[in-house]
Simulated scan of single mutants.
Amino acid sequence: MLLFIRKLDDFIISRITFKNSRRFLDKLMIFCSYLGNGGVIWLLICTFLIAYKPYRIVGISVLLSLVISLIVGEGIIKHCVKRLRPFRTNSNINILITKPLSYSFPSGHTFSSFAAANMLYLYFNGFAIIFFILASLIAISRIYLCVHYTTDIIAGFVLGLLCSKLLFILINYVSIYYCS
Results as ranks from 00 to 15, higher is better:
residue 22 R to N: 13
residue 139 A to Y: 11
residue 104 S to D: 10
residue 23 R to V: 13
residue 114 F to P: 02
residue 135 A to F: 12
residue 124 F to T: 01
residue 34 Y to M: 05
residue 68 I to N: 01
residue 105 F to L: 03
residue 177 Y to C: 09
residue 147 V to L: 10
residue 110 T to Y: 00
residue 117 A to S: 15
residue 116 A to D: 06
residue 133 I to P: 00
residue 131 F to R: 07
residue 129 I to C: 05
residue 60 I to D: 01
residue 122 L to A: 05
residue 174 V to I: 15
residue 40 V to E: 08
residue 125 N to L: 11
residue 55 Y to E: 00
residue 68 I to D: 00
residue 107 S to G: 06
residue 144 Y to G: 05
residue 179 C to A: 15
residue 30 I to H: 01
residue 46 C to H: 01
residue 22 R to I: 13
residue 42 W to C: 07
residue 57 I to T: 14
residue 151 T to H: 13
residue 179 C to W: 13
residue 42 W to A: 06
residue 133 I to Q: 00
residue 34 Y to E: 08
residue 20 N to F: 00
residue 15 R to T: 04
residue 111 F to G: 04
residue 51 A to K: 07
residue 84 L to H: 10
residue 128 A to H: 02
residue 49 L to G: 00
residue 84 L to P: 01
residue 179 C to M: 14
residue 27 K to A: 14
residue 42 W to N: 07
residue 38 G to Q: 09
residue 152 D to P: 01
residue 171 I to Q: 05
residue 4 F to H: 10
residue 15 R to L: 13
residue 80 C to H: 04
residue 50 I to V: 15
residue 159 L to R: 11
residue 119 M to S: 08
residue 114 F to V: 02
residue 179 C to S: 15
residue 104 S to R: 09
residue 116 A to C: 10
residue 131 F to C: 13
residue 112 S to N: 10
residue 115 A to T: 03
residue 147 V to F: 09
residue 134 L to W: 12
residue 177 Y to N: 15
